[in-house]
Design a protein around this nucleic acid. Structure first.
Length: 784
DNA sequence: GCGACGAACTTACCC
DNA sequence: ACGGGTAAGTTCGTCGCG
């Protein structure tokens, strides 16, 4: 029989001495299925030294049979390594665990230059070789087998054919289970070794929620959660911060209570897997917080802030309880009602985030080829790398091992000095995917690079401006092939989107797909210059950036010739006066002469630059401000400073009245001085970027973190520390206090005026001839 | 001993 | 744990100064 299924999770087992790939999925009749593939054996490649006779080397290995009893097959093949033809022996083994040890041993056999691809794990090898993609539909001929004990599935099959990919823009009807928990510690951060979980709220996308309290007995929570998962048999389990916090906490508590957290579709506990995510066999554990860094406008990416930004649960409707107050809310029976509500609202936010996140997560998982429960925790560089590894297979290119390289920087994009002041009618022109298109048009790739050590080259090649790197023009390189395909796929999706209704499921999925493709395409240049990359070749990144500078320089020259005033530019953009005719001519010439596309991305009625690069504010025709780089959009300035700066920008760009702006600042300052601005607007948030002991100088947020740590609070890297500056003598770091420990009358308002509001306001107002004196003098009069 | 100055450290941004 | 380029605040050492 034949079935169609959507691939949810993958694991491998060794049964009866043979490896098996287990594919967990949902079929097109909405049954939970397990498909077992017994047809695939792991392998690696032994690269034959160029001076050796490949057949002889193969025989030499064959003769060592006794030392390698688990080798099943040896096959001589042609492959490329960094573009060079090589002979390899594909060494197929019967046991995935033997791959690494065998490859190490084989490296010592004479005639074997190196062994490759032994680091690609069995299930990934399977997915790549069989062209199977997680989160996509596949068809297979299967044979049903009787139950294997302990497995939760509607049907279990053995696969009898190759899997066939089915293009279907549709997600199965998942059963999604979300959960949120609250732990109790009288003071400080709860520690799983001693502090119990007191509230656990869970629900499914069918809506049957539960909330379990641990009045006397935490067992109720643990047992309740385990049976809730069993009863609902979810495909996907979501939460916020579950990989870092909830799962490790649950596992430690369970161990403490002598319980087993059997939550998988086989009898197993959640366990740590590739790249450090928590895996639950047969289900997809998805931590929604792993996808929140895409929301760069949200500066403190808490669940409530992210839910607010995505319109899932508005902050104004939320019960918010500070971490420092949780214990008190649990202890007080009246306040506990609010705590229960808070937990339910966390859960509801999680359930709301699940849908939009899953659309993107499944598309990214399918594109990259990493399992759904894995993709979120996988760093951007590795996502690109897995796309490349998959493509390398088709390209006949061997996957290099990561090596250690010395760190040297190289010159990057070019940033122009802006023309300070206000400009009217400005167009910001952008190159379309500049770096990827440069890599394509110049054939810049690890396998086309001509190392100077190799001497002269007879065929056609390009020489990179400024840095002189050479790349073969033919044949098309690995990156060129991959990037061309990615760009074409994205263009096709975007065409298709035009034909779809914006609120259809299909539209949302294809939109998520094109976003995923874009992210990967744009990250390829960064990948090329990343020391951790398997395909790290510095000249690839360096040459791409050099051609980028060349392109923007040439574009500026073309603009000059057309009489277009270039006001600013950064890497792949130039800001010019908005003259449609000339802009059209410019993009025509750029296309003809540089082979790159440039087009207006944004049109401003009016735009303000200061002397600084990377900071400006434009006014769109619809009245909105486009604020870039300035304090308004930085997360490490107090809200008061950001408010004032935004107000000033609005008045200056919309009403063009410096007088009004000055007045606005002065009014705001007097509001502040009479303590009429909200206390939370005085908190300054900064990221703890390293362990507190590793800082070379004393910094306010670090000293504040230390104070909190003395009281039992603990922090992990990346946590935001919120502090308020209080009155007193000394350095800033001596006056900063945790925001939770400061009362309004202790605040050093003068600091906020002098070091927050005035600098932020003056940065803008200076462009209009307003000095600090003219801003503050009348203020003193007003006070007097 | 103390203020001016600038380098170093630090964060967060742009593309 | 993808790149380099940049702004900006705070700390901290150094230098000059009877």
């Amino acid at each position: 029989m034949s079935i169609q299924f959507w691939l949810l999770d993958i694991n491998s087992e060794i049964r009866n001495g043979s490896p098996e790939v287990w594919l967990w999925g949902i079929d097109d009749t909405n049954r939970r299925v397990l498909l077992i593939d017994r047809s695939f054996l792991p392998y690696f490649y032994a690269v034959v030294s160029p001076s050796e006779n490949p057949e002889q080397v193969l025989e030499r290995i064959r003769d060592l049979g006794k030392e390698f009893p688990l080798i099943r097959d040896l096959e001589l093949l042609d492959r490329k390594f960094f573009g060079k033809q090589v002979k390899v022996i594909k060494v197929t083994c019967t046991d995935p665990d033997s791959i690494v040890t065998y490859s190490k041993k084989l490296k010592r056999v004479p005639g074997v230059e190196n062994c490759l691809e032994d680091s690609i794990r069995y299930i990934m090898r399977y997915l790549i070789d069989k062209e199977v993609r997680p989160c996509r539909w596949h068809q297979a001929d299967v044979e049903e087998i009787e139950d294997i004990s302990g497995i939760i599935a509607d049907n279990i099959y053995v696969i009898r054919s190759a899997l066939k990919y089915i293009e279907r823009a549709e997600l199965p009807a998942f059963r999604v289970l979300g959960f949120a928990m609250i732990e109790y510690s009288r003071t400080g951060t709860p520690k799983p070794e001693k502090d119990p979980i007191v509230i656990l709220s869970a629900s499914t996308n069918k809506g049957n929620g539960i909330q379990i309290l641990a009045d006397k007995d935490e067992n109720a929570i643990m047992q309740g959660f385990i049976s809730y998962v069993k009863e609902n048999d979810p495909d996907v389990i979501v939460g916020y911060g579950t990989n870092q916090r909830d799962w490790p906490y649950l596992l430690t508590r369970a161990r403490k209570l002598g319980l087993r957290l059997s939550l998988g579709r086989v009898n197993g506990e959640p366990h740590t897997s590739m790249y450090g995510h928590i895996s639950i066999t047969g289900r997809a554990n998805v931590d929604l917080s792993d996808f929140s860094d895409e929301l760069t406008s949200v500066k403190i990416r808490t669940l409530e802030n992210v839910a607010d930004a995505l319109n899932v649960f508005r902050l104004k409707d939320r019960t918010i309880i500070e971490e420092t107050d949780l214990a008190e809310y649990w202890e007080d029976s009246k306040k506990r009602i609010a705590l229960k509500k808070y937990s339910l609202e966390n859960l509801s936010s999680i359930m709301g985030l699940a849908n939009p996140t899953m659309e993107y997560a499944t598309e990214l998982s399918a594109l990259v080829g990493l399992p759904l429960d894995n993709i979120g925790v996988t760093a951007a560089g590795f996502r690109v790398e897995w796309v490349l590894i998959r493509e390398a297979q088709h390209f006949g290119e061997l996957v290099p091992e990561h090596r250690e390289y010395p760190y040297f920087t190289y010159e990057g994009g070019m940033v122009l000095k802006p023309k300070p002041g206000v400009h009217e009618n400005v167009a910001a022109l952008d190159f379309k995917s500049m770096y990827p298109n440069i890599m394509i048009s110049k054939n810049i790739s690890p396998d086309t690079y001509l190392d100077p050590k190799e001497g002269d080259y007879q065929g056609a090649f390009t020489v990179t401006p400024e840095v002189g790197h050479r790349f073969r023009s033919e044949p098309p390189g690995f990156y060129k092939e991959v990037l061309t395909r990615l760009i074409r796929v994205r263009d096709d999706i975007r065409e298709k989107l035009k034909t779809l209704s914006k609120d259809s499921v299909e539209y949302r999925l294809f939109d998520a797909r094109q976003r995923a493709v874009k992210v990967i395409t744009n990250a390829t240049y960064g990948y090329a210059g990343w020391l951790g990359a398997r395909w790290y070749v510095k000249p690839v990144a360096e040459a791409t950036a050099a051609w980028g500078r060349y392109s923007i320089r040439s574009t500026i020259e073309l603009a000059d010739k057309l009489g277009l005033d270039v006001i600013y530019g950064d890497t792949d953009s130039i800001f010019v006066s908005h003259d449609s005719m000339k802009v059209g001519l410019l993009s025509k010439r750029v296309r003809e002469q540089l082979g790159l596309e440039i087009k207006p991305d944004k049109i401003y009625i009016r735009i303000l630059f200061t002397e600084a690069k990377k900071r400006y504010c434009g006014l769109f025709p619809d009245g909105h401000l486009d604020i870039v780089g300035l304090e308004v959009i930085r997360g490490d300035w107090a809200e008061v400073a950001k408010n004032v700066q935004e107000g000033v920008l609005g008045i200056l760009l919309r009403e063009q009245s410096p007088e009004k702006a000055v007045d606005y600042v002065q009014r705001y300052v007097s509001e502040l001085l009479s303590r009429r601005v909200a206390f939370k607007d005085l908190i300054i948030w900064k990221t703890l970027a390293k362990p507190v002991g590793e800082y070379a100088v004393k910094a306010a947020h670090v000293e504040v973190a230390k104070m909190l740590m003395k009281q039992g609070w603990s922090f992990t890297l990346g946590d935001k520390i919120g502090y308020v500056v209080t009155v007193g003598r000394g350095k800033l770091y001596e006056k900063a206090r945790p925001h939770s420990m400061v009362s309004y009358d202790e605040v050093d308002l003068d600091y906020y005026v002098e070091n927050q509001i005035l600098p932020a306001a003056l940065r803008i107002l200076e462009q209009f001839g307003v000095s600090k004196d003219s801003l503050t003098k009348p203020l003193q009069n007003r006070e007097a």
